[in-house]
Nucleic acid binder design. Structure first.
Lengths: 218, 218, 218, 218
DNA sequence: CATGAATGAGCCTTCATTCAT
DNA sequence: AATGAATGAAGGCTCATTCAT
């Protein structure tokens, strides 16, 4: 029996409140790892956080907002990792940049699934204001990456959008179904089960090459 | 007073039953054109078809199955168009093939949105059997295309999977939100609103080129 | 142990549906007799009717609509009684009319409490259309009474509005509180606990007299 | 930048505590002017008072108590005005008294709406003790009026109860609904929209006359 | 005295699906 | 085959009140 992690009874200071908010996001994250959005109720999140349902709404106005915050977080974390990777590997050629980008997506399936949500569900019960501020924040978070990629900023932005589309697209295509094991083993259907990373890498390199070719040309 | 479209009170013969099934799909299609899946109830479909709710369940076991059938249909239609286009234009170079593929996606937003559903919602409340038969059917539908693309069959299959991922990915990224007008006009956010067809074309050509290069190399 | 009253499993014919609707209204009525609106949940109504919660919403779009329907019913019943009373007693003098009106209010506390609701809660979650049709229906229901009161129609309508205001007013003032017994027995507070019928009668006669005097004068 | 109105950080002396209590009542009053009871949350009152939610409960045990206090206040103010009016106009005839009473109701819609609450909501979550003390206080507040009306005290008390019932009744009947504009303009429904003051005056005069007649008779 | 985070029962309503007719 | 009334679990969310700080 594991005792509950110590947590102040009431989050009083801004730090504690941030911590509480974080607790909620962590709980949502744990559930999100293996539960589709529609099956994931605020009730569950509350139980997982060991908070009352109403308390959730002290920190997030709606379910959508909660998940938008989760997305923002994951996006931030990924961009941090990407930045670190760029610093570490100091990619000089476009191909190296592509490699780094692909490498950075590892272990971020949760993020990819959240990105799918973004277009599908989020931004529906969310105010225009929040959408705007989300997009602005994303733009800000992108800057360190832009500063480190040895390509013109506009090109890098376009490249990142391609990465976004490709990640989401390949995520959808390769998404693990409850019991696809049997299907996978049918030879004539094998082509329907590509490897996420392999194909992402393939297409991203293709895009980078073309982007570079086009840039050079101009 | 307009009389209802002639329809047998009861569908007895297989033809009539097929017709009834088709009526339902047509109704679902009309609604799907401007309604997200979550907002689209079986009740609405029933009303639109002018059938009772229960009747729907004589033709489709679940809501998911209905939409899976709709997806199959759209897929079929698109592949027909693509086949016709391939016959008509007789593309010889890979670049021409890419052009034809891109062209074939025009007017098929509904299909793209259904493909997003496929990974997100469909195949959840659907039996393994049905999933299998769906995938097999897709494989079959693909054959005429494979026969017409001047590339090795395996390469074409892979290319089609790339097209799938790219369509879905760019669809998500460029999906029109209720009121993105304002956001779109923010210059620093402009990069977030690319054109579906332009970017799809760009990345598909890139992928085709690379696919060809790799194939040649081997 | 009382066996459940026989009720068709499904209300199929219009009559049965009317019956089912009636069942719900009867249940709501029973609860309403001793429960304030705010404490009376749709859940309770469902339990009392022995129907599922969702079923209620097949017959009434909102809680408010249900109670508006209940009010309409009670109003109808009261007006029927009033009509019968007018026929029976054939009041000739205004004073006799007042007596009949007062007599007609006996046993209609539920109606009075519903009328209080009307201004307070109902007509809030109710469409303008429904409000309009409610008011029109009331106007229609009034006609038999207008036809039987030996006063000009305009005067009778005004009189009925006075009856409305007086009933509601005295209802509020004399409303039985959970445990007012003790208070009632304080002599210096006795004036705060008048008798509904006595005071209603008093003021209604006063109003009738004045109405007649004014009418004669013109 | 506007500095907050000066208010001690903590109310220590009885005066300060009375002041704090008053602040809360003022805030509730402002909100009450245009918000129905059900839509008026303690949260709003707290925000409007610029106090924390919990602080409200140091001064009032429940929401109902708060509004009962507000009612007491309004009642007190109205009775002061009425007293002043009685002094000023020195009404001699019962008709003049009625005129003064009607005149005194002007600008007191908030009070009338609170009186409706009294029967409907208040006195529910309120202790018997508080109810008793409220009623006693009302009795006390009434005395100055009783001393100035040229009628036997018992008659005046009864008259005041009639005024209470009539005010509440006509308030309910004439209460302005969100968008009754359209309904009001339907000629056959016009009788449903009488004027508060006109009808109150009419019925109060009627009652006064009868009260006098009855008194004389005895 | 003041705070405001936390509570949690409870609200109304929705909707895919079932099944008696 | 067709109907549509009935189901009932589940949903997101509110808010008066409490209590640790």
């Amino acid at each position: 029996m594991v005792s509950d992690p110590p947590r102040p009874a009431r989050a009083r200071s801004p730090e504690e409140k941030g911590q509480r908010r974080d607790d909620i996001l962590r709980a949502a994250e744990r559930l999100w790892a293996h539960t589709p959005y529609a099956d994931l109720s605020m009730n569950q999140v509350a139980r997982e956080t060991k908070l009352a349902k109403g308390t959730l709404y002290l920190y997030f106005d709606t379910k959508e907002e909660l998940f938008l915050a989760l997305l923002t977080e994951h996006l931030g974390r990924w961009l941090e990792e990407l930045t670190a990777l760029l610093d570490e590997r100091g990619p000089k050629t476009p191909g190296e940049v592509a490699d780094v980008l692909v490498a950075s997506t590892r272990g971020h399936e949760a993020l990819r699934r959240l990105l799918i949500l973004l277009g599908t569900v989020l931004e529906h019960n969310v105010s225009l204001e929040l959408t705007l501020s989300f997009k602005r924040e994303v733009r800000t978070l992108l800057q360190p990456v832009l500063d480190r990629v040895p390509l013109p900023q506009g090109v890098t932005l376009r490249l990142l959008m391609h990465l976004y589309a490709l990640s989401v697209g390949w995520q959808q295509v390769t998404e693990e179904q409850p019991s696809t094991g049997y299907l996978r083993r049918q030879p004539e259907l094998a082509f329907m089960f590509p490897s996420f990373e392999k194909e992402l890498s393939f297409s991203l390199h293709a895009v980078v090459d073309r982007l570079v070719a086009e840039t050079a040309q101009v």
